[in-house]
Deep mutational scan, measured.
Amino acid sequence: AVSDRLIGRKSVVMEAISPQNSGLVKVDGETWRATSGTVLDVGEEVSVKAIEGVKLVVEKLE
Rank of each mutant, 00 (worst) to 15 (best):
S47Q: 14
W32Q: 00
E52Q: 11
K10H: 10
D41G: 12
E45G: 05
K49L: 13
G8S: 04
D41L: 13
A1L: 12
V2D: 11
V13G: 01
V27H: 02
S36D: 02
I17W: 02
K55E: 13
K55Q: 15
Q20L: 11
L24M: 10
D41S: 13
V46C: 15
V13S: 01
R33M: 14
K26T: 10
S11Q: 01
G8M: 04
S36L: 03
L24T: 10
L24V: 10
V46S: 02
V27A: 04
R5Q: 08
L40R: 00
I51W: 07
S18P: 02
L56W: 00
N21S: 13
I17R: 01
K49Y: 08
I17Q: 02
W32Y: 15
A34P: 01
K10A: 07
I7S: 03
Q20T: 13
A16E: 07
G23A: 02
I17C: 05
R33Q: 14
E45D: 06
R5V: 07
V25M: 03
G53A: 04
K49F: 08
R33H: 11
D4Q: 14
E52G: 04
S3C: 12
E45Y: 13
V57Q: 05
L56H: 02
D41N: 13
T31H: 08
W32I: 01
V58C: 03
A16Y: 09
K55H: 15
G23Q: 01
Q20P: 15
I51F: 07
N21L: 11
S3W: 12
E52W: 12
E15H: 07
L24A: 09
E59I: 09
E59V: 11
R9I: 06
L61Q: 08
S22K: 04
E15Y: 08
N21R: 15
K10G: 06
S22M: 13
V42M: 06
A50P: 00
A16R: 15
K10D: 06
A16W: 11
L40E: 02
S22T: 13
V39T: 12
A34R: 00
S18H: 07
K49M: 13
L24H: 05
S47V: 15
K49S: 08
D4W: 10
K26Q: 12
T35P: 02
S18F: 07
S36K: 00
V13Q: 01
K10T: 12
G23F: 04
E45W: 15
A16P: 10
D28W: 06
M14F: 10
A34N: 04
S47D: 06
L56Y: 03
V13K: 00
V39C: 14
D4E: 13
E15C: 13
V57R: 09
K49G: 03
S22R: 04
E30D: 08
V57K: 05
I7L: 10
R33E: 14
L24N: 03
T35I: 14
S3T: 12
R5T: 09
A50E: 06
K55T: 15
K10E: 06
A50T: 06
T38P: 00
A50Q: 06
G29C: 12
G23M: 02
R5M: 08
V2G: 12
G23S: 01
S47R: 15
T35Y: 07
K26D: 10
V57C: 06
S3I: 12
L24G: 03
Q20V: 09
I7F: 06
G29L: 05
E44V: 10
V58Q: 01
G53C: 04
S18L: 05
W32C: 03
S47W: 15
L61A: 09
R9W: 07
E44M: 11
V13P: 00
E62Y: 13
K55G: 10
I51K: 05
P19F: 06
V2I: 13
A50W: 07
K60L: 07
Q20S: 12
M14I: 15
A34E: 01
R5W: 10
I17G: 03
T35F: 07
K10C: 14
D4T: 13
E15V: 12
A50L: 06
P19H: 05
K60V: 06
V12T: 09
D28I: 05
V13I: 04
W32S: 00
D28S: 06
R9N: 05
A34K: 02
Q20G: 14
G23V: 03
E52F: 11
V42N: 03
V58Y: 00
K10M: 12
K26R: 12
V27M: 08
S3P: 13
G23H: 01
K55C: 15
R5I: 07
V12E: 05
G37H: 14
V46I: 04
M14G: 01
V2K: 11
E45R: 09
R33C: 13
L6D: 01
K55Y: 15
V25N: 02
I7N: 03
A1Y: 13
V2C: 13
R33A: 14
G53D: 06
S36I: 01
Q20I: 10
L40W: 07
R5S: 10
T35W: 07
L24S: 10
S3A: 13
K26N: 11
E52P: 02
V25I: 08
D28L: 09
G37P: 10
T31Y: 14
I7Y: 04
V48P: 01
E15A: 11
T38I: 09
T31W: 10
D28Q: 06
E59W: 06
E45Q: 10
K26E: 12
A16M: 11
V42S: 04
R33S: 12
R5F: 09
E52I: 13
K49A: 08
I7Q: 03
A16N: 06
S3Y: 13
S47E: 13
E30V: 11
V54I: 12
V2W: 14
D28H: 05
K55I: 15
V27G: 00
V42L: 06
V58S: 01
A34M: 00
E52M: 12
K10V: 13
V13D: 01
S11R: 00
E45P: 07
V27F: 06
G29W: 05
V58E: 01
D4S: 14
R9M: 14
V42T: 05
G8N: 06
V42D: 01
S18W: 07
K49E: 06
G43Q: 03
E59F: 07
V27D: 01
L40S: 00
V46W: 02
E52K: 09
M14R: 04
K60G: 05
G43N: 05
S22D: 15
K26C: 15
E62I: 12
S11F: 08
I17K: 02
G53H: 05
A34H: 01
S18A: 06
G43S: 03
I17M: 04
D28Y: 05
E44D: 10
V25T: 03
W32E: 00
E45C: 15
A34C: 07
R9Y: 07
D4M: 13
I7G: 01
G8T: 04
G43I: 01
D28F: 07
G8R: 05
G8C: 08
I51N: 03
A16D: 03
V57M: 06
P19T: 05
T31Q: 08
I51S: 04
V48T: 02
G23P: 00
T35N: 06
G53K: 03
G23I: 02
E45F: 14
V54W: 14
E44R: 04
V13H: 01
D4N: 14
I17F: 03
A50V: 04
T38W: 10
V48L: 02
E52R: 10
V39P: 11
I17P: 02
S36T: 02
S36V: 01
E59T: 08
S3V: 11
G29D: 09
I7M: 07
K10R: 13
V25R: 02
S18Y: 08
G23W: 06
W32D: 00
G29I: 03
K26Y: 14
E30M: 10
T31C: 15
S18R: 07
S47G: 07
P19G: 06
L61M: 10
P19M: 05
V42E: 06
E15N: 06
G53I: 03
K10S: 08
S47L: 15
V54R: 13
V58N: 02
L40M: 09
E52H: 11
L61S: 08
S11N: 03
T35L: 08
V27P: 02
K10L: 14
G43C: 08
E30R: 09
V25Q: 02
I51C: 05
K26W: 14
E45N: 08
A1K: 12
V39N: 13
R33Y: 11
E44H: 04
V27Q: 02
G29P: 02
S18E: 04
G37F: 14
K26F: 14
V12G: 02
D4V: 12
I51P: 00
E45H: 11
A16T: 09
P19E: 05
S22N: 10
K49D: 02
L6S: 01
K10W: 10
R5K: 09
G8W: 02
S18D: 07
G29N: 09
V48F: 03
E45I: 15
V25L: 04
S18N: 08
D28G: 08
D41W: 12
